[in-house]
Design a protein around this nucleic acid. Sequence first.
DNA 1: CGATTATGTCAGCAGTGTTGACATAAAACG
DNA 2: CGTTTTATGTCAACACTGCTGACATAATCG
Lengths: 175, 175
Amino acid sequence: MLRVKLSRKCATMAEPKTIVNPLFLREDDLRQAIELLFFAYRDFTARGDAILARQHFGRAHHRILYFVGRYPGIPVGDLLDILNITKQSLSRVLSQLVREEYVLQKPGTRDRRQRLLYLTDKGKTLERELTSEQRMRFAAAYKDAGAVAVEGFRKVMLGIMDAKARKRFLSPFET
Amino acid sequence: MLRVKLSRKCATMAEPKTIVNPLFLREDDLRQAIELLFFAYRDFTARGDAILARQHFGRAHHRILYFVGRYPGIPVGDLLDILNITKQSLSRVLSQLVREEYVLQKPGTRDRRQRLLYLTDKGKTLERELTSEQRMRFAAAYKDAGAVAVEGFRKVMLGIMDAKARKRFLSPFET
DNA sequence: CGATTATGTCAGCAGTGTTGACATAAAACG
DNA sequence: CGTTTTATGTCAACACTGCTGACATAATCG
């Protein structure tokens, strides 16, 4: 579970971790964990970015499409909470999606200040195109890894995210 | 500063998945997987970004500091391979780090065209500050999740990344 | 020597996140 | 009812990061 490559080209590659030092190995595990997350996320998002670039969109557009598809009728404020960005950042991208008819806004019934968001058919189509590759990626990885591994992945990811986000996963119907 | 929770406000939250439909559940698992990765990565990088902002740096600076610290003496080309960005993108940030003496460049001995990269003490200090929070995050998550979960996390992440990156993890001494 | 490689640099564009300031409509409250 | 707060939007400016294209230098290779 050691080092990555570069061996041929990178001079200071040696440093074999052969000595059984629990503490040292732990450091190595943590370093590897960081890299696993980095490379997985990098590759996970790469193809979607390419698709988005075709229509002059970016990753932010995908995130909006995804979460609006996930929670049809979501108010803007809730979307801001999920994305953890400012309303100005969201607005720029969201208004573009509304203008180009990927997303539809309806005034709230209970609270007419709210603008509830929905995907149009056009939006659904693009969202599916973007997300399906990512779902296939996970489907393949889950299949290869097995059910036990999947549960482990889930546990570690929940441990990495902040408590607030973790709560959303663990208790779907709470404030 | 926090908004409210989705559940209360978002009308179309219901959709209980009570019906035992394997295919449907699978879709739900994949959707959850995507979100786990999204939220974990978002929160994983947030504090580092805040630290970097203090010195007018960004996430790209951290990545360079991290991988140069990881592979002292790494040539620029190898770093480009790891980061998967253009040399122009790298150059802007790297030359800044060199100028401000976080990173040191030495001409290669075998190939004098190469510029081998090393962290200065200043660079090591900043890198440690940035990465230590991330390591602690994983240390806590790993501890809570347990060894089996960690192995599962590792398997799933390897499955998500592209084959090229996976190889780097699995066969430490190859290109 | 000519071709390729490793690296760098200048310039411009796009996407995304930030802060600050200001505006409107509706809900909440006393 | 009138004041305050909330939900949302908008304009503007700035910073970081990625990309493409073009061009330059030095060293290695064949």
